[in-house]
């Protein structure tokens, strides 16, 4: 995906990204370089597109987490294959 706009549903990335806001996402950055800790990413999880921040990367797997400490419903570790792109503008 070169560049795509997405509407955010949910509170887990607040205060960084608020519920209902629009973000721009692209897969291009990860064609050039590897994902790194701190990136906000879009990924496919249980057939849903989710956004979270990368907390840790180990053995080709990525630990993702929301910024909102009040919402701690965890996705946990995902595979790099599930990665769709990097959130560029929010």
């Amino acid at each position: 995906m070169l560049l795509s706009l997405l509407k955010i549903s949910g509170h887990s990335m607040e205060p960084t990204i608020k519920n209902g806001s629009i973000v721009a996402v692209s897969s291009v950055p990860y064609c050039i370089r590897e994902p790194k800790v701190g990136d906000v990413i879009l990924f496919l999880h249980k057939r849903k597109k989710l956004i979270k921040r990368i907390k840790e990367i180990k053995n080709g797997r990525i630990l993702v987490e929301g910024d909102n400490k009040e919402d701690t419903s965890n996705v946990g570790w995902i595979s790099k294959d599930e990665l769709l792109g990097k959130i560029l503008i929010y």
Partner: peptide, 19 residues
């Protein structure tokens, strides 16, 4: 700017309401 556009949704939560 894009409020009126039909955009795809990305979810900032898991399977249940948050918190």
């Amino acid at each position: 700017l894009f409020n009126s556009l039909q955009l795809q949704t990305a979810y900032a939560h898991c399977d249940i309401p948050c918190g």
